[in-house]
Design a protein around this nucleic acid. Sequence first.
RNA 1: GUGCCCGUAGCUCAGCUGGUAGAGCAUCCGACUUUUAAUCGGACGGUCGAAGGUUCGAAUCCUUCCGGGCACACCA
Length: 535
Amino acid sequence: MANTPTIFDAEFFANAANARAWPFEEAKKIVKRLEKSPKDEVLFQTGYGPSGLPHIGTFGEVARTSMVRTAFRLLTGDKIPSKIICFSDDMDGFRKVPTNVPNQERMAEYLGMPLTKVPDPFSDEYPSFAHHNNARLQKFLDDFGFEYEFVSSTDYYTSGVLDKALLRMLEVYDDVMKVILPTLGEERQKTYSPFLPLCPRTGKVLQVPMIARDVEAGTVTYIDPETNEEVTVPVTGGAVKCQWKADWALRWYALGIDYEMSGKDLIDSVRLSSRIVRAMGGTPPESLSYELFLDEKGQKISKSKGNGLSMEDWLTYASPESLALFMYQKPKTAKKLYFDVIPKAVDEFYAFSKAAEKQTPAELLENPATHIAGEFPPAHELPISFALLLNLVSAANAEDSDVLWGFISRYAPDATPETHPELDRLVGYAIRYFNDFVKPTKEFRAATEQEAKAMAELAARLDEVEDATDAEAIQTLVFEVGKKYEFEPLRNWFKALYQVLLGQDQGPRFGSFVALYGVEETKALIAKGLAGELL
RNA sequence: GUGCCCGUAGCUCAGCUGGUAGAGCAUCCGACUUUUAAUCGGACGGUCGAAGGUUCGAAUCCUUCCGGGCACACCA
């Protein structure tokens, strides 16, 4: 999924200007911006809050931002350097001990401290909780091959990278307040400050009003809420950090961010932060508000609720590429993100990849697979679709890949795990899907007296079949037994086999099933079924 | 209240810069199967939420309205 240079050639550059895919529409906004004020390097930003772990939304945002960047490089002939900054707001105060971490009491002692001062509850491998989560984020992004530059807010504040911007914010303090105050409630207005000093005594991030400020000296003064003493601190060097919307604006201004997308719940924040940047004399980045994801009931997916689908969920049943495809599609439309969208995304990914084989550069630029891969997509040939595979795994009661491959080879005789590693990967996904979604819905019933007798005889006579892999011979035997015990109509006999042995009303052709599942295994299965062990 | 998204076949949705609608699933019929499922072929099925407007021509652009969903304190 990394951006590789493959599509960055003249042919693609020539066609990019006419490309209509949304990443190009976004990239064009940046091109226009550059026409007004040229610069040496274009910066994309995505934000990350290290009080939690990376999640499916993080993936979506970085993936989509990468797509815009790729489009931008194509539009500009890859002549203008660009990068994605992944900014971790790790100086933010520690507000709440997450319920899912160990060492709760110890963690509680650090409430109010910057996240980079809170110890890592999981191990002593990292200097802080934030470092731990930052590392997880980077690992997460690296695993998918994203190109980005990680930035720690704490590093930037303390090393002075943000000093100039902080002093500027101090200069225009009144204007900034004028922008923010009207958006706050009455209570909050009294205590609001865009600067949050770090208490020199306790190290905590304080939410206190400023009582004075000195632009010349570059300091602010507040009253320590515990000692009631006046404290004066510089706004530079990491002695203060900025509050949320001001912080966003500060970053945009200080780093010169050109592009940042965010969820639609942040529309007002973007507007406000933009006004702050203008008050400082800067230009806010181009932005895109994407729609939020909904769960199966149409509710907003939130980390705290734990509803909807997690990153792990998706990757358990499907590939990251298919998730990237899902993220590519219609970012401005609210979509359900639930298990049932997975098969379609998987199959469409392969369909788009395959279509790419015969496409011209102009067409490729409209092909989602191009935007996902960031390169000429490798053409994966799949003899059967994921949707079919899911049907198969369910019908065949296939709990391991060998059995499933047996059934697959009936449809695609040439396919093996070796010749079709992609398909083999899907087989793994399908089996997990089966285990988690199909298997729990199975309902086994006890055999009737007549059925029990017939099944016992079937089990006993299975050994008569000379070739245990001869599906036809086995099918004949099954058929004979059914006739002998006078099932009428005969399909009831087969139905009984499925219901008693597989816990479902339908199943694969039984002869084929036995041939693949194994004679001994089938006998054992029948024994279990008759003993009531499957119920 | 402000803003965003959606409203196209029974269901889930695709329809790009305007030229009288498509897919998957479901349903029905057929083929192949010594049951079923699967697979393959075919059929059925839409006044494109409503009304105006622009246009030779609109699902597609504009306006208004109706219906559904979501976001908008604090915190990030």
